[in-house]
């Protein structure tokens, strides 16, 4: 009894320490975002504070192109998700249901892409995209982001389809459904958690990417959030208030996304062995 009790408290204590490590940077980001510029560089700071100002957020929304950046980021991330989900679901299905020559090579080759430093992959992509006129376009950046997310997604979907029992679709076939109908109506719903994991993974990579967006998007109207944020840093002194305000605004919807989808996420990745 007492031992059980001690265990529980120790676990609680460890968790508290761990959560402090995870949350403190996020907390301080929020506090800084809500601190007016003139007080920013005046340490010592009150670590716990109740007076806040919306000055930075107001400046962010009115005096900068933050909303444009945010819009661009969303468009590119959604495009990346859509292409990734379609391509990786199909590939995962084929890999798990058919035998064909070159299957092993194809799977291994997906991993090769990760062995090349992304920032230097951006250079040839830049040359190619300049050549075919895809620079400063949503399409170009989406394709670039696909290059870093698709390989792992093919992998995730391949693994996922393996645990969706064949008997499910076979049952559909015997009741007269075509392969395509069986895929759409029977397999896809049971593979949903895997699809959601793939979607979130693609979203995260696209949403976070700095290297490709920085090289491929040169027109400020096409900047994504990470590149746009970098302009706040630029040659003038670093405007910490603005940076933290935009970080805060970016984090809130992301948190909501993780919070509501975590059940699927957990399930999807559990197959990733």
């Amino acid at each position: 009894m007492t031992r059980e009790f001690a265990w529980r408290w120790m676990r609680f204590l460890w968790l508290a320490v761990g959560m402090l490590f995870v949350c403190f940077p996020l907390y301080w980001m929020a506090v800084t975002a809500l601190t007016p510029r003139t007080e920013l560089f005046r340490p010592p700071y009150d670590v716990i504070r109740f007076s806040y100002s919306l000055e930075n957020i107001r400046e962010l929304l009115s005096a900068t192109q933050f909303l444009t950046f945010m819009g661009n980021s969303l468009i590119v991330a959604l495009g990346t998700v859509v292409i990734n989900v379609m391509a990786s679901t199909l590939a995962g299905y084929a890999l798990s249901r058919f035998e064909f020559r070159g299957k092993k090579t194809f799977v291994a080759a997906t991993l090769w892409t990760y062995m090349f430093p992304p920032i230097l992959l951006a250079i040839p992509l830049y040359l190619v995209f300049s050549y075919i006129g895809l620079r400063n376009s949503y399409g170009g950046l989406i394709l670039a982001h696909v290059s870093i997310s698709l390989p792992l997604n093919v992998w995730i979907m391949w693994q996922y389809f393996q645990v969706v029992p064949r008997s499910l679709e076979e049952a559909a076939w015997t009741s007269g459904a075509s392969r395509l109908r069986a895929l759409i109506e029977v397999l896809l719903p049971s593979a949903l958690p895997g699809i959601i994991s793939a979607a979130i993974f693609s979203f995260a990579l696209s949403w976070n990417d700095f290297a490709f967006a920085f090289i491929l998007q040169t027109d400020i109207a096409m900047f994504t959030l990470p590149v746009g944020l970098a302009t706040f840093v630029e040659q003038s002194a670093i405007h910490w208030g603005l940076i933290m305000a935009s970080s805060l605004i970016v984090s809130l919807p992301t948190f909501a996304l993780v919070f509501f989808l975590q059940r699927y996420l957990m399930h999807g990745f559990s197959i990733g062995k």
């Binding site: 830049y126 300049s130 050549y131 920085f214 090289i215 027109d219 302009t231 630029e234 040659q235």
Partner: peptide
Amino acid sequence: VTMEYPGFANIAQRVATLIASGT
């Protein structure tokens, strides 16, 4: 005229990349 503002730290890189790609 299309403007580009790569920023103080990266302008040399941008100029070079454009030349290297023949544009």
